[in-house]
Design a binder for these strands. Structure first.
Lengths: 227, 227
DNA sequence: ATAGTTTTTTAGCACACGATAAAAAACACC
DNA sequence: GGTGTTTTTTATCGTGTGCTAAAAAACTAT
């Protein structure tokens, strides 16, 4: 009874979009095969959204870049423009922005922040990719009909800031940071640096210049009294 | 002869757009009077562009907000969308962003930077205006057809950074900053803070939080050895 | 071969975009 | 009151937007 209900409701949920690409490639039971690879298509879509922003990107820009001939194939595979953008953001986090999560693997908070910011300097000036950061320039300001996208990007930025704050909190507990340190304020400061670097990169600043900014920014790091 | 030629060519130049609003109100010789005030109309246009960005703003959004009934009146008064945006940016610099130029009136470079950044914290969170900074969020990323606007904004940001660099250079000459100070790098750092603050404000950070960021950012200020 | 499933293709929807030609309206000057 | 000038109004233009219904095509399983 319970199993039946659960199974039924689950099937009902998936039936609305089980042919959509979610994580890795979906298992297909028969039917005409896709003429394109979903992951590389997402990479192409990422590049366009990254360069042109959400509102600056048209469906035709996407299909052209993704190697999809017609709009219906795109809608069939990825849902509407907004859903596609979300999938693109996930792929961004797992691809070009993977360095962010990896920075938190550093043994000390200071090394984590340094790795994060120098990684940003590199990632936002990668010659093989668009300048800047899609999370910042994807939709900083937009028309009322795109508010949801703007808010999703703001939420993703906030999530990064939260992770940073928690890492700094832990560093204070561990004694890496002085007891008087304000983790919230410090995390906000480094998030501001991060986002400022994204704007600088979008404006044409060189990789070397951005690394210099990071070096300057790191000088605010609180020193322990006994150091 | 010379006067005639000059007068003629001047008239020719102005004849293409002498009815456009440039700085203050144009002197009109006869003709049907404007049904709207150009400066307040520009203020309304500024608000829309500020909130929605260049590409997120439609002509109909503008006419509605500016109190202009029909598109031709807008085109007649301000030229096309791109020209209107330029005039709006000028009005922004003389209005809500006036604090930027005024910050340079401070007696010391340090006071100038402090005034500039705390001014940014206030201006980007003014409850009576859109969040953030139009120079940053107006067109960070855009479609290929809007590249000129993106570049104009980048140029305006670069101009601010240049002014800051020159002020810091002077401070080094004056002895306010140590001889070993790098004015370019320091100016880039503070410009990054400024732009990061704009992103933070667009994302919903409070005024108080932004002032805290500024206080943290100012701790990098180089100390003289004899201080 | 047939049936079932999925994708692609074809064609087009309703609407919004930036921008403009032509005419009507409202003023100044004489 | 007429003339000249400028703005507003009316009615679009051509193009692009995000999106979709319906049919054809390409596969799997039987």
């Amino acid at each position: 009874m319970a199993f039946g209900l659960v199974g039924w409701s689950t099937a009902l949920y998936f039936s609305s979009d089980y042919n959509l690409v979610s994580g890795s490639e979906a298992i297909m039971a028969g039917g005409r095969p896709r003429s394109f690879d979903s992951d590389t298509a997402l990479d192409r879509a990422l590049e366009v959204f990254w360069r042109q922003g959400y509102e600056g990107t048209g469906i035709s820009d996407l299909t052209k870049a993704m190697g999809i001939n017609n709009a219906p194939s795109l809608y069939n595979a990825f849902g509407n423009k907004e859903q596609l953008f979300s999938k693109v953001l996930d792929r961004y986090a797992d691809g070009p922005a993977r360095y962010i999560r990896e920075a938190f693997d550093q043994p000390t908070a200071r090394a984590a922040v340094e790795t994060l910011l120098h990684g940003a300097a590199d990632a936002t000036t990668d010659p093989d990719r668009p300048r800047g950061c899609i999370t910042v320039q994807g939709a900083l300001a937009c028309s009322p009909g795109t508010e949801a996208v703007r808010e999703e990007l703001a939420a993703r930025r906030a999530a990064g800031e939260t992770a940073l704050r928690e890492r700094l909190r832990r560093a204070r507990s561990d004694g890496e940071l002085p007891a008087g340190t304000d983790p919230e304020g410090l995390a906000r400061y480094f998030a501001t640096i991060y986002q400022g670097i994204a704007v600088q990169a979008a404006g044409g600043a060189s990789r070397q210049q951005l690394h210099g900014i990071v070096d300057t920014a790191m000088t605010v790091w609180p020193q322990r009294a006994d150091a």
